[in-house]
């Protein structure tokens, strides 16, 4: 018997029994009252599907969505890190205007619901940017070219490329505010003496920031930054609202066409959980090793 089982007391068994009864009841209600027919056996097909005519396995809706979520999360994190670092530096700038602008951005993002922000960013910013760069035409060009496979590995379906970029930009802009706060805290945790020492050997403010303050600050903010990355993965489901083809959006699609409401959403929840929980455990272990 594993050691943790020996520690269980009667109360623990009672609580476990109540929980099992509760979820059993919920499942039965779903099946009975809602007259829902569980069809779990269909789900694997929507993750990975075997195509007999071509004799290949290919990623179906859910896995495509998962891959896109991972892509978007990685790109948005990189972008958010860059923007957030600039924002964090701006928050500690000597110039009042710069400081006020950064503060305004932060407070706006903190006090407007994420969904509203996503729509505003989408229509006012990223959409304009995509039109202006003429990304649509460029992506269609790539989709017809020979090395489309390499592009698709990095960006998913090329016809959807502009939408993916829009999603990345929106998500990055949104998260950058929080990354900025983390960076600011990191910068402010560096003792004043470090800056004075840098200045006393003739460094400019920029050099002082780049060679002395930021390297130390960034090291300190790795743990909160890792947490923010996990938050970003979860937040990425918001951009399904602007039709970015990530996991949540694909699930909506799947549910709409197959009525596998509970199965599909539970599977998607499991995907998010596994990714975020694994990362969180991984970061915790890395943190302990440092």
């Amino acid at each position: 018997m594993p050691s943790f089982l020996k520690k269980l007391k009667i109360a623990d068994y009672v609580i476990a029994a109540i929980l099992v009864a509760f979820f059993g009841y919920v499942a039965l209600t779903v099946e009975g009252k809602l007259n829902y027919e569980w069809r779990w056996e269909l789900i694997p097909n929507y993750i990975l599907r075997y195509r007999e005519d071509q004799d290949v396995w290919f990623a179906n809706l859910l896995l495509q969505g998962l891959f896109n979520t991972i892509r978007i999360s990685i790109y948005a994190s990189v972008l958010a890190l860059i923007l957030g670092t600039i924002l964090g530096i701006a928050r500690t700038a000597e110039n009042l205007t710069v400081r006020m602008l950064a503060r305004t951005y932060l407070e706006l993002l903190r006090n407007i619901p994420p969904v509203v922000i996503v729509f505003i960013f989408f229509f006012f910013l990223s959409q304009q940017l995509i039109d202006w760069l003429n990304l649509d035409r460029w992506a269609r060009g790539i989709a017809r070219s020979d090395n489309v496979h390499i592009w698709e590995f990095f960006f998913g379906e090329m016809r959807r490329f502009p939408s993916l970029i829009a999603g990345v930009i929106v998500l990055a802009l949104f998260e950058s505010a929080f990354v900025g706060e983390i960076v600011r805290a990191g910068i402010q945790s560096i003792p004043q003496g470090q800056r004075e020492a840098a200045r006393s050997i003739g460094m400019s403010r920029l050099q002082e920031m780049r060679y002395i303050v930021l390297p130390q600050a960034m090291k300190k903010v790795v743990p909160p930054m890792a947490n923010q990355f996990i938050t970003l993965i979860k937040d990425s489901s918001i951009i399904s609202l602007i039709s970015v083809q990530e996991l949540t959006y694909k699930t909506v699609e799947l549910v709409a066409s197959t009525r596998l409401i509970f199965e599909a959403w539970l599977t998607t929840a499991a995907f998010y959980f596994v990714i975020c929980f694994t990362l969180s455990m991984l970061f915790r272990r890395l943190e302990r090793q440092r």
Binding site: P191, G193, Q194, E196, A197, S200, Q216, K219
Partner: peptide, 9 residues
């Protein structure tokens, strides 16, 4: 400086 202020990194 009194506190040395060497760059620890």
């Amino acid at each position: 400086f009194q506190q040395f202020n060497l760059f620890p990194h």
